[in-house]
Amino acid sequence: MREPTYFILAALLAGPLHGYAIIKHAEAMSGGRVRLTTGTLYTALDRLTAEGHIRLVSEELVAGRIRRSYGLTDKGSAALRAEAQRMAEAARLVTGEESVPRRSQVGRKARTA
C-alpha cells in the first residue's frame, strides 16, 4: 500500500470525511509529509471505491456544489490494519526487541537454502 493511500484510509478511521477534510487530515497525520493534491485525491478515491475499501456515506449541497463524504468499509479497515501491522513488524526489525529472533529465523532460512 502506498503512503498516500495509507493516510487517506487512516484519515477515515475516525469517521466519514469529505474531500478537502481528507487532504487536511492526511497532511496533519503524516506530519506534513503527505500533501495530497486534489487530482491525486480523487484518483485515489475512485480506485479505493472500486476496490471496496471506502464507500460514499453522504451527499450534501454546499455553496451550490455537491459535497460527498466517504467512510471506511470493513474491507478497507481490515486492509489498513493489516498494513499498519506489517509496517509495525517491519519497524520492530530495526528498533524493537522482537527483531532479534526474526533476524535469526531469516538467517537460518538463508543458511538452509
Binding site: 469529505h18 474531500g19 478537502y20 485525491l41 480523487y42 454546499v62 455537491i66 459535497r67 460527498r68
Partner: peptide, 13 residues
C-alpha cells in the same frame, strides 16, 4: 459525475 465535487475541493484547497 465528479466535476462539482472536485471544483468544491479545489476552491477550498
Amino acid at each position: 459525475e465528479r466535476g462539482e465535487e472536485i471544483v468544491g475541493t479545489l476552491v477550498e484547497a
